[in-house]
Design a protein around this nucleic acid. Structure first.
Lengths: 246, 246
DNA sequence: GGTTCCGTTTGATCCACGTCAAAGCGGGAA
DNA sequence: TTCCCGCTTTGACGTGGATCAAACGGAACC
């Protein structure tokens, strides 16, 4: 009884503190006690709104903080000397941005909002310092960093071994699954990014992406109207992930 | 005087403790004092030899430790459901393996020795615990994790935007640079991996890799005899990185 | 020295995707 | 409503790299 009351009030505090999204991934799964959550909460004071198409940070900016997405949608991309551009990821509410900056005290990619967004600013030196006191928080940070590495390996697999339609199927299933986790429909959603941005992420040209969408629609796996996607046959999409034996 | 004596003896201790390679990247750049180094040293007691072609760990193995390569050469790769394989990296002395395992308490890729190798075993829970005492050590771990993320972004750029010869040029320059840092010749070295492994890493077939080697040789950028590579014109190789405008 | 095995090179052909071009569509502004 | 503009779709064609095939070369073993 006492315990359930405490949990309720804790949930209430968090709702106002971080909505229900942002820091769940970074801190809540690790089971902090009330005092520890309060300390974390103090650390994550600042909020920052980022309008659509505006950068949260840019390559070369000094690294100061990680960012937990409260609401919105981002892409990250890197630009190399000769102007080529690679989208390295799309991030949605509850995910963490900025980890690329830790290694050199400077961000190495751009983080651009694809819709009006809001993030919690987590000053990194303070996070490290709090992690020294709260082992569970420290461990969770390590998991978040490692998860990003594992995700990147998945993208390498996609870019290195899959063909166009397999890449798009993997992309759609991944997006769908992440929307589902956030309580949205897994079958119907709208993409925040252009065909060109999808293509950059998947290592394809925008025309190829468009053709693959059309092909999936012809095969009744999905329906496409601009950026509105409905998944009609997710088992079929999963089968499209397997290399056709040719 | 006193100080220089202390440094000498410290260097002596480290040489026996970790040779000159392994933990430099993980701990030494951060300026630990003598006592802190001793504590770290105790943590890194165990060594492990790994014979050529043998795994240091495999996907699915429980995650227990990070590994600092003392001597040798590794590849990491991931395997997906339908049997496709992607080499995600090549690691040499002084680099850290195992970071993929933190997120899920289980390794998600294979680490295979490409020559007889030896690693220092760093039990991760003890490393976290020591990091809580030694802020500089904790921060350095974060940097190592972040550096891996940044490296992965570079590979994505390579796989997503570059053509075959550009990829191989980038690969050769990267390997050359890393050998140089370790005090080996930047101009002449021998590759520990097969054409097929290079191809997997670069998202190319082995025949394409071989043709690109031959092309570079024809152009007098390198000389190739099997796995023995000599870089004849590194400026020319760097130019091969830029997309030819044609 | 000869044989075997595995990795590498090289050639001929094929095809998935890129490139170039043009038309379609939807949303915002006037 | 109409125009405009950026995104998307679709078609025709070209090409870089994959595929298939065969020969070559070095190292280990007999």
């Amino acid at each position: 009884m006492d315990k359930s009351v405490r949990e309720t009030s804790l949930a209430g505090r968090l709702k106002t503190a971080c909505a229900q999204c942002s820091l769940r991934e970074l801190c809540l799964p690790v089971g902090l006690n009330q005092d520890e959550v309060a300390r974390l909460d103090r650390l994550v004071g600042a909020r920052r709104k980022v309008l659509r198409q505006q950068p949260l940070y840019r390559a070369g900016d000094p690294f100061e903080a990680l960012y937990a997405i409260r609401v919105g949608f981002f892409k990250t991309d890197v630009l190399n000397e000769d102007g080529r551009n690679q989208v390295t990821g799309f991030q949605m509410a509850g995910e963490i941005l900025g980890m690329d900056g830790i290694s050199s005290e400077m961000h190495s990619c751009n983080a651009i909002a694809l819709e009006d967004s809001e993030v919690c600013v987590i000053p990194f030196d303070q996070l490290e310092s709090l992690g020294r006191d709260i082992g569970a928080l420290q461990h969770n940070l390590h998991q978040v960093l490692s998860r990003e590495i594992v995700r990147d390996h998945g993208v390498m697999m996609l870019l290195g071994t899959m063909r166009a339609e397999e890449r798009l199927a993997a992309f759609l299933l991944n997006i769908s699954q992440r929307f589902t986790v956030r309580g949205f429909s897994h079958a119907e959603f709208h993409l925040r990014m252009t065909r060109e941005e999808i293509g950059s992420y998947l290592g394809l040209k925008l025309e190829t992406v468009s053709r693959a969408f059309s092909k999936f629609q012809d095969e009744k796996l999905i329906s496409v109207q601009q950026r509105r996607i409905r998944i009609l046959d997710s088992a079929g999409l999963k089968k499209a992930l397997e290399r056709r034996s040719g």
